[in-house]
């Protein structure tokens, strides 16, 4: 069973302020999509909308074979969460209950979904290089950061979810553990034919695992496309700035250039015009008057001009 996700014209608000505004994005069946953005870009809010979380003001989040998450009632959402959509929350390393063993928490999860059989956890944990008996009998503090992250992935997938959302899965992990987790994400994704969304601030993480990437800024998706294409040939000035600001391991050190300015917070996102214009090196008059439309996977006035 393959399930793609279609997000259309989605606006999610906090109070009066849109944290995500008019976002459309398609997660194709069986792909890993990376959602890149800085703090306050709305990337976590967008990811949470896949669970039907957040105050969805308009638009829809349609999961093939499940329905529109924005229109479901609470009971239906609860049934779908976990069973169809697995979610590994940000800081999953710290989201286990410290007073219960992993096994007990697994049984609780199963019971809440009316599932009796949780033996699926064993092969899943083994697949991720863990000893299932040891892990299930452990408390949170007995597991390393990387092990907890894998336990988080197990919880997300044990009920046979086909859509997997990982929010900052490798933040606070060191390089070797990060590489290990990303390898596991790739393998589990391929084994189970998942549709995966990986939310991160780290372009490197997306480059390692995702075949497609969407770049968020100020609550909008400003560019999307195939990861290799976007990395090799970024078109939006923000994407370009972000990639240029990554220090490299080889070549001249000064290839990397800082991006001037500060990313906006929810309260400081401009209401009209392009959200990136304050930091944009190629800003034009039209940028402050009018919000750029998404044309050919880029939302930038300047790119539209040069293409024509």
């Amino acid at each position: 069973m393959n399930m793609g996700v279609t997000i259309a014209g989605l606006t999610v608000t906090y109070g009066d302020l849109p944290a995500v505004k008019d976002v459309s994005l398609r997660l194709e069946d069986g792909t890993i999509t990376g959602l890149v953005g800085e703090s306050g870009s709305g990337k976590s809010t967008l990811a949470l909308s896949l669970l039907g979380h957040g105050n969805i003001a308009s638009g829809s989040v349609f999961i093939d074979g499940v329905g529109d998450m924005s229109k479901m009632d609470k009971g239906a959402l609860r049934a779908v969460r976990g069973a169809k959509i697995g979610y590994v929350f940000q800081a999953a390393q710290n989201s286990l209950n410290p007073l219960l063993t992993v096994g007990k928490q697994l049984l609780d999860l199963a019971k809440s979904h009316g599932v009796r059989d949780v033996r699926g956890a064993h092969p899943l944990l083994r697949r991720m290089g863990l000893d299932p008996d040891r892990v299930l009998n452990s408390y949170q503090h007995e597991l390393s950061g990387g092990m907890r992250q894998r336990v988080g992935i197990m919880f997300a997938l044990v009920l046979n979810a086909h859509v997997l959302v990982l929010d900052e899965p490798t933040t606070a992990l060191d390089m070797i553990t990060q590489a290990n987790i990303l390898q596991i994400v790739r393998e589990v994704h391929a084994d189970r034919g998942l549709t995966t969304l990986i939310v991160t601030h780290d372009v490197g993480v997306v480059a390692e695992v995702a075949s497609r990437v969407a770049v968020m800024y100020g609550g909008r998706i400003v560019e999307c496309g195939s990861t290799k294409e976007v990395l090799a040939n970024p078109r939006h000035p923000y994407t370009r700035g972000l990639i240029n600001a990554i220090p490299r391991l080889t070549g001249p050190v000064d290839v990397a250039k800082p991006l001037p300015g500060t990313p906006p917070t929810l309260g400081t996102i401009p209401a009209v015009g392009c959200v990136f214009r304050a930091r944009c090196p190629i800003r034009m008059d039209v940028c402050s008057a009018q919000e750029p439309e998404m044309i050919d996977d880029v939302a930038c006035h300047a790119v539209g001009v040069t293409a024509k």
């Binding site: 390089m175 590489a179 780290d202 490197g204 480059a207 290799k228 294409e229 990395l231 090799a232 391991l249």
Partner: peptide
Amino acid sequence: QCLLSAIPVLHGL
């Protein structure tokens, strides 16, 4: 070598 191998590769670049 293991540590440096673990650094994500910017595929495409």
